[in-house]
Design a protein around this nucleic acid. Structure first.
Lengths: 202, 202
DNA sequence: CCTTCAGGTTAACGACCGCTAACCTCCCTG
DNA sequence: CAGGGAGGTTAGCGGTCGTTAACCTGAAGG
């Protein structure tokens, strides 16, 4: 994985600021002038980089869903490589870890991800939903390996619930009195495993 | 608790429909004409009942927060009455049950509750936040009784996370292939307890 | 040195939206 | 039976917002 070292392009600046603003005030609550101002250009200058406001949101949401899915697939594949009969529990831990990293490091994106999906054009929304569904099903498969007693609908609900738990970080106030990032990650990880454990033992 | 049997007033109809629409498409995404149409009157007729669109959102959010807090206080008080040294675990179970009932029965309100808070006037927002804070602190107190080892910031984060878990039901697709309401409530309850348990045992 | 083009700018248009004004109709009550 | 208020209606104003048009500029390339 080649980590980027070059400067971010203007497009990327715009996307980042747009994500932050959309998360803060909602898609309809942010004007294009504001987005422009956030990157030092003003208003219609954005149209040199994007077809429109909708296009920014679409690119953000498709990007997020894709990243989540790609990361999860990579983690599963890595575990497959390790041994013939892998430890499903370890894979689940890895998935949880990946999702937590995302939730903690890209809060605005996580917020957008389950908040503004309906503002997309039909085709984009279908694509995002498909990526999301694949991500969920990947989790469901692993969870049911770890807890074979879980029926599929139950496992799916459990996975959604754990996503809710892990994605809850945006609701925390400004990084004041709460645990540091490392402690928070550990806490969330333990709680997620505990929740699955409780779901898996009827 | 006198359960209502009389017909809902127009105000209540409007609030209910507005909640649904706001949850579906966001506060800014819904026009007053749509809200009016949803209750069979059109557009400006709403202004006979509310001072403005903002007032509807405010009344919704204050109402939700208040109901949650009131219900939780009642549950705690009932447990206090039962015995001198009550079973804190049972109180926690009762709180969880109440929150689940709310999340399952009033999905749109739960969605609004942590999504549109920023659209309120300053004074209303302060009020809602204060009610929310009291609700959280009430939970934190009970949780720390059940798991005395938990530091306060950790407990608070855990409570927020469990709220995320319990509030995750809106993200589930239309009531198709997922567990029925009773099974869902049981599943959520077990997962919430499991998550707290995992948080409480470092 | 001329051209081109990427990446800006400001002005302005058109649509939409929240809200008000003005008016209309029942229904209740003295 | 007058009249008045509750609860509607439609027309329209004013502001905002996404988008387009027209223009500018500085740097790269032949």
């Amino acid at each position: 994985m080649a980590t980027r070292t070059d400067a971010p392009t203007r497009r990327e600046q715009i996307l980042k600021e747009a994500a932050r603003l959309f998360a803060e005030r909602g898609f309809h609550g942010v004007g294009v002038d504001e987005i422009g101002a956030a990157v030092g250009i003003s208003g219609p200058g954005l149209y040199r980089h994007f077809a429109g406001k909708d296009a920014m949101l679409a690119e953000l949401l498709v990007g997020i869903s894709g990243q989540l899915l790609t990361g999860a697939r990579r983690r599963v594949a890595e575990a497959e490589g390790d041994s013939v009969d892998r430890d499903a529990g370890a894979v689940l831990d890895s998935l949880i870890e990946g999702h937590i990293d995302f939730a903690l490091d890209d809060r605005p994106l996580i917020t957008l991800h389950d908040r503004e999906l309906d503002r997309l054009r039909d085709s984009d929304r279908k694509l995002v939903r498909q990526l999301q569904r694949q991500y969920v099903e990947l989790w469901v498969g692993i969870v049911r390996e770890v807890y074979p007693g879980l029926a599929e609908p139950t496992a799916r609900s459990a996975v959604h619930s754990v996503f809710g738990l892990l994605n809850s970080t945006p609701h925390l106030g400004r990084p004041g009195s709460l645990p540091g990032r490392g402690a928070m990650a550990q806490l969330l990880h333990r709680m997620a495993r505990g929740a699955f454990e409780a779901a898996g033992t009827d």
